[in-house]
């Protein structure tokens, strides 16, 4: 049995938080833990928006009770999405709801300064992308090497697109219409783990890859 702290997890999506309840937890456990978690960060959750609740162990009735409880007690908005993209809750993480269905362009060499690759679909580079080079894909971008140039994934407005690289060190990252630049003060050369960038609540978030799947 997992400790109580792991019973509840919050996942951010652009439509609001998703509450994920560990499938070993019962209703009582879940409710108690939920209160504890929200209370510990009341300022953060105040007026926030929730979109869904995942709990394989709880009945629909129990879920609705939880939702009603949250709405009344914490003044939290709850918008139930019509369709749930995430099927497998235990494997849910922020970038699993990506589109794998596009065609993919593979490039097997270093992309140097001045080079410009645009593709309707995903781009996979087996090599480095150097500063001054630019990759634009309507889908996802994966670099099996160092990404030091500019990458734009989901260029036609796909917020679910991601950019992943063995060494993610771009001058600028764009996903859909969101733009991010590397922090200047950070020593990026120290970063040796593969990373993945995706859009989370309107911002580009970078995580080490893989996260706990």
């Amino acid at each position: 049995m997992k400790s109580l702290k792991d019973t509840i997890e919050f996942k951010g999506t652009k439509d609001g938080f998703i509450i994920v309840v560990n499938n070993e937890a019962d209703f009582h456990n879940a409710k108690e833990n939920l209160i504890e978690k929200i209370n510990s960060n009341l300022f953060f959750f105040k007026g926030s928006q929730f979109s869904d609740i995942y709990a394989t162990n709880l009945s629909d009735d129990e879920k609705n009770k939880l939702i009603n409880f949250l709405v009344t007690k914490f003044n939290i908005k709850f918008l139930k999405k019509e369709k749930t993209i995430l099927k497998d809750i235990s494997k849910e993480c922020s970038y699993t709801n990506i589109n794998f269905e596009k065609t993919t362009k593979f490039i097997k060499n270093t992309i140097r300064s001045g080079a410009f690759v645009e593709y309707e679909g995903n781009i996979v580079v087996l090599g480095d992308v150097n500063p001054g080079a630019q990759l634009i894909a309507t889908g996802n971008i994966v670099v099996m090497g160092a990404l030091r140039g500019i990458a734009h994934a989901g260029s036609k407005g796909d917020d679910l697109a991601f950019v992943s690289a063995i060494k993610l060190n771009p001058i600028q990252l764009r996903i859909s219409s969101v733009i991010a630049i590397s922090p200047e003060d950070e020593n990026l050369s120290a970063n040796i783990l593969p990373q993945i960038a995706f859009v989370h609540e309107g911002h580009i978030v970078i995580e080490n890859y893989p996260t706990k799947i």
């Binding site: 992309i111 140097r112 300064s113 001045g114 080079a115 150097n130 500063p131 001054g132």
Partner: peptide
């Protein structure tokens, strides 16, 4: 170095 990189690409 940036310009050298560009040149290497053009040479290739």
């Amino acid at each position: 170095v940036r310009d050298a990189d560009r040149i290497i690409g053009l040479l290739e």
